[in-house]
Design a protein around this nucleic acid. Structure first.
Length: 1061
RNA sequence: GGGCCCGUAGCUCAGCCAGGUAGAGCGCCCGGCUGAUAACCGGGCGGUCGGGGGUUCGAAUCCCCCCGGGCCCA
């Protein structure tokens, strides 16, 4: 016969051990496989797509842990709701950060070294080895957290099948005319020797640069120059034109025997900076008048490239590029080295785009004299010297400003125009916005943010001049220039290529094709793809599309969740790929989560010393505690990491444990069998608190589902916590305690067992997605032994649906009121110094409305028990009014000014005629008296009125009404109180002797006569409570008995105990 | 410089969308309970709801500006 086992309460609680045990249990019994198999039998699909973490570290960030816990909780929820859940994890593996790490490991620092010293083949091998190590380490940490995903079958972006899937999209883009090669100005890292996309330019440093004012002589005018300002002298050799604004006023300013042209609002600043006080503004005019003025470039003779640029040297109007806030209002423009310059040039000038800096950051041959010099250092220096020598330098100083550096190697970046491959995303803009609108965003503002970004979308530079990435599948004929994009390995072979060992560089670089146009040899463009491309195609690539057709059955992705940085990142790249490849958004709903910050709300950084190491965390805090704690945070807000917060959560688990051991202690004692004595069997014996907790439970279930389906798992987590702590532990268990202490087989006890068992069992299942370890453990130890038909694991259970018929609003309101009344009584007792142990004769309540009174009386039994009162009386407010005693005190601040010299005597009257004065002032507002033959009128303001209740009545006023406790002692209550004191002490002694709760004893009580009388009077009560077979009053007892002397209210008593046979 | 989010007690946070007497847990102090006991109950201390302005009879809540923090851009 199954019954609740006694295993739980025999064991010392240790959450770490518990989790270790569960981990072993899952492994030994293949629980994940069972869960997965069960899920796969369902035909309701739930396609979850894991945003792949970047596999560049062996220790995960706290934020990554949170991310996976959120995912796991939601996946578990949907599995337990009977869905066929796709739970494949992913890893993002390509890209520059990993290349840089490997370069460091191998001790090289340039692309040349990778090719010549290391060899690309070995380099790629090292990248792969590094990634594999990271994946292994990360996987084991995710498993530690109890994350149930298909860890044996992750999608990994460097696999050939994945690369091939990536090619497919490039081919799609090409077929749709979205792929193009173009020149654009981008940031370039001269160390990594690759272009960086806008979003990769994320780091800035405070760097020092020259700040120079340079004179560009105006053609055909003696000693007259345009004055320009720049902090990048190295761009001057590539100067093509000068920009001015039509919205700014300019002036010709005489300085010495020269005339300088500059913006009016800048004159004073510039002159001051240059230390020139003697200057004269000759003439002011609108910027428009500058248009077309030609100038001579001061370095014209030193720079070869200037020969082609000279014809364009004139002033161009470009209000978007010129401000009156800095410089001179005249901006030197080098289309090959500036974004705006490039745009203005294409729109208005059409000069050749010249970049005079090479891949390594050195000046090119075309820069003439400066050939070979490094741009920010050597070239700057040489150029400034030449300008000075030629008299073209107006003023020179240094400036410290924010300058972009490479996000991986911190090398200052250079802006330069290069030829790159693009996808014309701008053409898809309206479609992107339209598709974004169909997606469910939680929270709402994520959508706003997303659409804001889409409005500013730019074409996407997909090419990178690196090694560790998906090779760009573009082949170009070396003879006729014909370009072809390859969409698959099969196509590669069809085109005459040989299938390489793997699709990475360098193997793929060796594959040549035969040009279908001219028969010439086609070579691959040596670029690889931007690493953001990789994860963007995961929605189909992880499923092996197009080689396999699973995506077509599974689409769209039902759910994704990542941090809010991914609004711009992955959420965007997925949508972009979805629209390029399939003309639609690939996912249906998004949950955005926050960042894991430190206690002060700052970002965690190893360099800031506030970094919390995952391994430290997991060794200090049990996994479920971490999980349940992080899940309490409003998902889309930032998580403030807190050791203290985690400690608090440990206590919650302690209470959960205590709750289950409480139940198991008594249920096992009585061999309670939930399969025989279930809720149905005890239905008619349910007490009001039983019906109440069942109502609460079902309300919880309903709200829990609402929260989970609305992607508010934190709300569900909070509800679970408050249900178990507040409703079950703090209230329900307190209420049923006495019922489970009953010895015999009473219906009310069985009703309590059945209810408690049902509640705790259901709760385990509801908790399982959040606290998989604890739920499993309690399921194995508490549920399993009691139910023959229990599942192998709690994770194979199905989530219950709420039983609406058990939700009773009225009852819950009644209980709410009862609890408030009990609270008020406790406060009143406390004020009067009456212990809860001592019963009181009556509690008197004047409710604010009759309704409340009725509710109180419906809960009479509960209130009487919890408040330890013999009776409850409902009275009208007049009861308290009549009992109230008023006292008045003289208010000297008001008395003084009114009565001057009489003040002391008036005060005397007030103090001596208390009641009389108080009554009069309350009813009439004044009190009239004769003082030294003078009539005085004492007003309300002259006194402070205080209300008191008589000694015997302790009162607490509440929003429900006035609650009074009659504190008068009658002999019977005193007796009962004393008896209870003795009981308590016997219990303490039993505990000290380590007696089992159900053991019987024999006891002897001697000492104070009043106490003995009380015990004699309530003998059977004492015997019952303490499980005493025999209670000897006034007898010494044997010497071998366990003995203790006590003092109760100043009275001595000696108690002896022996274990009865 | 722009977009979005956050700012409430010493700490962690709820309340804000749908305006109506500022809440919980923890911590601290005092008291109680002692058959869940590293649990539990009551009371107290503690708040310019980041600051300022506006709308309103009434604002933590709605609007505007500013400050601090976060993310993403420029």
């Amino acid at each position: 016969m199954p019954s609740v086992s006694d295993e739980l309460h025999k064991e010392k609680y240790d959450q770490f051990k518990l989790e270790e045990w569960v981990k072993g249990f899952w492994e030994d019994n293949n629980i994940y496989q069972l869960v997965k198999e069960k899920s796969m039998r369902s035909d309701k699909k739930f396609y979850f797509l894991d945003g792949p973490p970047y596999a560049s570290s062996t220790v995960i960030h706290i934020g990554t842990a949170w991310n996976k816990v959120i995912k796991d909780t939601i996946l578990r929820y949907y599995r337990m709701k009977g869905y066929n859940v796709w739970d494949q994890p992913g890893f993002d593996t390509h890209g520059l950060p990993i290349e840089v790490k490997i370069e460091r490991e191998l001790g090289v620092s340039s692309k040349k070294d990778i090719v010549d010293v290391i060899g690309v083949e070995r380099f790629i091998g090292e990248c792969k080895r590094f990634v594999d190590t990271s994946i292994k380490a990360m996987t084991s940490q995710f498993k530690e957290l109890g994350v149930f995903m298909d860890w044996d079958n992750p999608y990994i972006t460097y696999k050939d099948e994945y690369i091939e899937a990536g090619w497919w999209l490039i081919k799609r883009a090409w077929e749709k005319g979205l792929l193009y090669r173009g020149v654009q100005v981008h940031h370039w890292c001269p160390r990594c020797e690759t272009t960086l996309a806008d979003y990769e330019v994320s780091e800035y440093r405070e760097l020092e640069d020259p700040s120079i004012y340079v004179k560009f002589p105006v053609k055909g005018r003696e000693k007259e120059s345009l004055l320009i300002w720049t902090t990048t002298p190295w761009t001057l050799p590539a100067n093509a034109f000068v920009m001015a604004s039509p919205n700014i006023m300019y002036a010709r300013v005489r300085v010495g025997d020269e005339v300088l042209i500059m913006a009016v609002p800048r004159i004073e600043r510039v002159m001051k900076e240059a230390g020139i006080s003697n200057y004269e503004v000759l003439e002011e005019f609108s910027g428009e008048e500058l248009e077309g003025i030609e100038y001579i470039h001061p370095l014209e003779d030193l720079v070869d490239a200037q020969k082609t640029l000279a014809p364009y040297h004139r002033v161009v109007l470009a209000p978007e590029a010129v401000t009156a806030h800095e410089g001179t209002g005249l901006v030197h423009s080098a289309p090959g080295h500036g974004d705006i310059d490039f745009k203005v040039n294409s729109a208005k000038v059409g000069a050749p785009v010249v970049s005079l800096v090479d891949d390594q950051g050195r000046m090119t041959r075309e820069s003439g004299k400066y050939h070979g010099l490094y741009f920010r250092t050597e070239a700057n220096k040489a150029i400034i010297e030449d300008l000075k020598r030629m008299g073209a330098l107006f003023y020179e100083s240094r400036v410290v400003h924010r300058y972009p550096v490479c996000w991986r190697c911190k090398t200052p970046l250079v802006l330069r125009a290069t030829r790159q491959w693009f996808i014309k995303v701008t053409q898809l803009k309206s479609k992107l916005i339209q598709e974004a609108d169909k997606i469910r965003w939680q929270p709402d503002w994520a959508k706003t943010r997303f659409v804001n970004l889409l409005r500013e979308v730019r074409d996407w530079v997909i090419s990178r001049q690196r090694f560790w990435g998906i090779p760009l599948p573009v082949w170009v004929c070396s003879k006729c220039g014909y370009t072809h994009v390859i969409g698959s390995v099969d196509e590669l072979v069809e085109m005459g290529g040989e299938k390489p060992k793997e699709l990475h560089r360098p193997w793929i670089d060796r594959v040549t094709l035969k040009c279908p146009k001219c028969g010439g040899e086609m070579h691959r463009v040596p670029d690889v793809l931007d690493v953001w491309f990789d994860s963007g195609v995961s929605f189909y690539a992880s499923l092996g599309y197009p080689r396999r057709k699973l995506w077509e059955d599974m689409k769209p992705v039902d759910f994704i969740t990542e941090g809010h940085d991914q609004i711009r990142g992955w959420f965007f790249s997925l949508l972009r790929s979805g629209v390029i490849g399939f003309d639609e958004a690939p996912y249906r709903s998004v949950l955005v989560h926050g960042f894991a910050l430190d206690e002060q709300g700052r970002e965690m950084h190893k360099s800031l010393g506030n970094y919390v190491d995952f391994n430290e965390l997991i060794s200090r805090v049990p996994r479920d505690v971490i999980r349940f704690w992080v899940m309490q945070t409003t998902v889309w807000e930032d998580l403030r990491f807190s050791w203290k917060g985690l400690d608090e959560m440990k206590r919650v688990f302690n209470i959960i444990w205590n709750t289950y051991t409480f139940a198991s202690t008594y249920m096992s004692l009585d061999k309670y069998d939930p399969t025989r004595t279930g809720l149905d069997a005890v239905w008619s014996s349910l007490e009001v608190e039983d019906r109440w907790i069942l109502s609460r439970l079902n309300r919880l279930i309903a709200r829990y589902h609402e929260a989970m389906e609305d992607l508010r798992p934190h709300d569900a987590a909070r509800m679970l916590k408050s249900f178990i702590i507040d409703d079950v532990s703090h209230w329900y268990i307190r209420l049923v305690r006495r019922r489970v202490w009953i010895e015999e087989d009473a219906p009310t006890k069985n009703a309590a067992y059945a209810t408690l068992y049902h509640v705790l069992r259901t709760l385990l299942v509801l908790m399982a997605p959040f606290t998989p370890y604890t739920s499993e453990y309690l399921y194995q130890k508490f549920v399993k032994p009691a139910e023959d038909n229990a599942r192998a694991s709690v994770h194979l259970e199905e989530l219950p649906e709420a039983r609406e018929d058990l939700i009773d609003d009225e009852l819950e309101r009644d209980m709410e009121i009862a609890s408030q009344i009990v609270e008020a009584v406790a406060a009143a007792r406390n004020a009067a110094g009456i212990k809860l142990r001592r019963p009181v004769k009556r509690v008197i309540i004047a409710p604010v409305e009759e309704e409340v009174g009725r509710r109180i009386m419906r809960m009479e039994r509960v209130i009487k028990e919890m408040a330890n009162t013999k009776t409850i009386e409902i009275v009208g407010p007049e009861f308290f009014e009549e009992a109230r005693i008023y006292r008045v005190e003289p208010n000297y601040r008001e008395l003084g000014p009114s009565f001057k010299k009489l003040t002391p005597k008036v005060a005397e009257v007030i103090s001596s005629r208390q009641e009389e004065v108080a009554k009069s002032i309350i009813s009439e507002g004044t009190y009239k008296a004769e003082v030294d033959d003078v009539s005085v009128v004492i007003e309300r303001r002259h006194v402070n009125i205080k209300a008191y209740y008589p000694e015997w009545l302790s009162v607490k006023e509440t929003s429900l009404g006035i609650v009074g406790v009659d504190t008068r002692l009658e002999k019977s209550e005193i007796m009962e109180g004393l008896a209870r004191e003795v009981v308590r002490r016997i219990q303490a002694m039993r505990k000290e002797m380590n007696l089992p709760v159900n053991a019987f004893i024999e006891a002897w009580v001697t000492g104070d006569s009043e106490i003995l009388e009380a015990v004699r009077e309530l003998k059977s009560y004492v015997e019952n409570e303490t499980r005493s077979k025999q209670l000897h009053i006034g007898e010494e007892g044997p010497g071998n008995a366990f003995s203790r002397e006590w003092e109760v209210d100043g009275k001595r008593v000696t108690i002896k105990i022996l274990l009865a046979e």
